[in-house]
Nucleic acid binder design. Structure first.
Lengths: 221, 221
DNA sequence: AATTTTTTTTAGATTTGTCTAAAAAATATT
DNA sequence: AATATTTTTTAGACAAATCTAAAAAAAATT
């Protein structure tokens, strides 16, 4: 009674889950952009997922996961984030190198494997990017995190999450020596370009562009 | 430049490798039996593997892997056996429960993952069934093991390998309290049914049928 | 409100891996 | 050596997941 879903189906379910987090529903074009497939291919899969009762979908309407679909999505996300944690914690991967590998490992469905891995890792609550890991029942912690652009001046905070996994972003962060857990303070905000000056540890202040600040989430400490 | 081969192709390559260990080559029927597919499906894949230069194959002839094909097979086997070791050693799986899960994990191709896993496990030389694990160059240790039927009387030996992974076999072994590493001595051989009486540790001697003895391999200590 | 544009779906084709049924080749038997 | 049997391959079909091109529906614009 393991997974029952193909890797492709799992990838659709996961993508729909993530996209519907924003507005509660998803459109065909959004999903096709997210998966790098054509809208026609998406339509085919939507019909399939509807038949399997994982998706609320009517032609030409927006769609969203059923309770069952959400449950499955959370399980896939659980697997993905547990593996990311494992790769960083045990195998000494950099936290910016784990995403692709976890994309593959997440499709190994054995419940026994996942639960034993969870236990071996001591039931971690957050993955290396600061995203919460669903527990065996699909529940996950919520962080009271704010976007770096909303952090008040001179308030010490810790980076908890990075809102994208692109290599370009991770390269930039690594250059600026910012990672999950980094403690920082916003020293100045520039209204001209909405960039912020941030002090990391005792180093010289660095400037963070609006684009970058928008994907950095922090938790006041 | 990772794996480049589909899961199906990898399964064919692995099965051919194992089958050709016996006689140096494989027939279509043997392979179809081993993979639980029809001979016609096998023929299709053979042509594909030949095009990819992984297989020496001419219609109606026996076939065998090229050097390149063997290299790929060894890499798949490396992944499989490393994961089996991980599951038993780190996740506390029973050695008789790991095969199916490893069948899935073995298809995650990332070289970095596999090499880091190898290092994390401290470069194990044998998997939990006693099978040698190919190293990063495809080399593996050879055990000077003999079949239990060939072990001389009263010679202390250690179980190194079990020549099958069937649940039925593993259940029987577990009942007789025999596992990889178990030390035993053959006390008597019965010519009538070719069964042997074996003393395990200080327990009362147990009788092992010819069929069972044939799949048990031991190394004199 | 009518028209244009965008979005989504349908129709039909392609690739991968599978199948069945029939043909061809190799092997075994008489 | 001729015939029968077994093995293997070919031919054609099917399911999953994709695509392109065209049609239909919805949304935006005039």
């Amino acid at each position: 009674m393991s997974s029952n879903f193909s890797i492709t189906e799992e990838n659709y379910i996961k993508a729909i889950y993530h996209l519907q987090q924003a507005t509660g529903s998803v459109t065909t074009n959004e999903l096709s952009a997210s998966l790098l497939t054509k809208p026609a291919s998406v339509t085919d899969m939507l019909k399939k997922l509807k038949v399997k009762k994982l998706l609320h979908y009517e032609p030409y309407k927006v769609f969203y996961l059923t309770a069952e679909g959400k449950k499955i999505a959370l399980n896939i996300i659980r697997r993905h984030r547990l593996w990311e944690f494992f790769l960083v914690e045990k195998l000494a991967f950099g936290w910016d190198e784990v995403h692709e590998v976890a994309e593959e490992l997440e499709h190994v469905g054995s419940k026994k494997l996942v639960d034993k891995l969870d236990s071996y890792l001591d039931f971690p609550k957050f993955d290396p990017h600061g995203d919460p890991i669903p527990d065996v029942n699909g529940k996950m912690s919520i962080v009271q995190q704010v976007n770096l652009t909303e952090l008040p001046l001179n308030k010490l905070a810790q980076v908890t999450m990075v809102g994208s996994q692109s290599t370009e972003l991770l390269e930039l962060l690594s250059h600026k020596d910012i990672t999950i857990g980094t403690k920082l303070e916003v020293k100045k905000k520039f209204s001209f370009d909405k960039s912020v000056e941030v002090k990391v540890k005792n180093l010289a202040p660095v400037n963070i562009s609006e684009q970058l600040a928008k994907v950095l989430f922090v938790k006041p400490v």
